[in-house]
Amino acid sequence: MVQHNPEIRLPTSAELPCSDDTPVDNEDQNFIPNFLLFLLEFIWGNRLDWYFGVDMGVYHTTGVNPRVPVVPDGFLSLGVERRKNNGSRSSYVLWEENNIAPIFVLEIVSHTYGGEYDTKMAIYANLGVLYYVVYNPNFWRRDQEQPFEVYRLVNGSYHLQIGEPFWMPEIGLGIGRFVAQVGGIQREVLYWYDAQGVRYQTGEELAEIERNQRELAQQQAELERKRSNEMAELLARYRDRFGDLTQD
């Protein structure tokens, strides 16, 4: 539960670094959270009550020092300003966000283990993060876990959930894996899903579908035109040979 002693002077976001400056050691740690953010901007383009942070420090008062952040690969908060004071955030400082903790956190396990299954899990539970997703496509055997795990906070502890895509009613989104052509490369990525389990597609994918439908319509129109021409030619040859049967 997020709380602090009002007698303690807390630093402002301007005084705090944006992250812990720990470099990521694989491409997915940057790409996948940014991909989810890109999709959210498309899905929730008309909403201003959410914020999705990528590799950004989350400052809180539930740890040993409010100046020490936890840095998720990605996180989603609801009921906050889309853009803080019409600008961008350098970090997510809970005491400047009405103590609204993220409702969703994503961690992507890399070659260097980052405490995703213990240390960070305990921090997020203490913060009150409702949904915690651990994506571990490459090292799940090493860690004796599953490649994709969704945890839900129940009575202060995380419980592994079943089902994929997994629907999160408090958020109004589901999440799951899908192998797609992204940026010219076929790869497994995480996508948002609707309540029926239908994957939200990117603008690029929708444009490709529209392009294919347009090409198919053009091909069908061309086929009909050819059939019409062939029928007219056949009828003309028939008339040349047998005459116009409509006349006595």
Rank of each mutant, 00 (worst) to 15 (best):
R227C: 00
A14F: 07
Y158M: 05
F242C: 05
K226G: 03
V24S: 12
R227Y: 02
Q218M: 13
Y238V: 04
T202Y: 10
Q218N: 08
V134F: 03
E41L: 13
M56C: 00
D240E: 15
N212K: 15
V109Y: 04
L130R: 11
Y51K: 06
P66D: 02
E188P: 00
N138M: 02
G174R: 12
I108L: 09
Q144R: 15
E204L: 08
V133E: 07
L235N: 12
W140I: 01
P69Y: 04
E230S: 06
N98A: 14
G57D: 02
V80C: 11
L223Q: 14
Y132F: 10
S90E: 06
G115N: 11
R152H: 02
T12W: 10
E170H: 08
I108Q: 04
E210I: 03
Q247F: 02
I175H: 05
E97M: 12
H111F: 06
P69W: 04
G87I: 00
V2E: 12
V154E: 12
G203I: 15
V54C: 13
T112R: 10
T119D: 11
V105M: 01
M231Q: 15
W95A: 01
W192R: 14
L76P: 01
R239L: 14
P165L: 09
Q201D: 11
L206C: 11
A221V: 00
R187T: 15
Q186D: 11
T12H: 13
E15Y: 03
H159D: 11
E170C: 01
A180T: 11
N99Y: 09
S13W: 01
E208F: 08
F42V: 06
L78R: 04
L234E: 13
E224R: 15
E164D: 08
D20F: 11
F35K: 01
Y151N: 08
N212Y: 01
V2S: 10
G79C: 05
G63T: 09
L234F: 13
D25C: 06
D240V: 05
N26D: 13
E41W: 12
P137Y: 06
F166V: 09
P6F: 04
Y51T: 01
G79S: 09
G128W: 05
K84F: 07
Y132N: 10
A125N: 10
R241Y: 08
D28I: 00
Q3N: 12
I8F: 04
G203T: 14
V129H: 04
N85F: 02
L106M: 04
R177M: 10
Y151A: 04
D248M: 03
Q219I: 03
F38L: 13
C18E: 15
E233H: 14
V182S: 10
Y51A: 05
T202G: 05
D28A: 13
R47E: 13
R177W: 03
L106T: 07
I171G: 03
A217H: 10
Q181K: 13
E15L: 03
N5Y: 03
V189D: 07
R82C: 06
V182M: 10
R187H: 08
L173W: 05
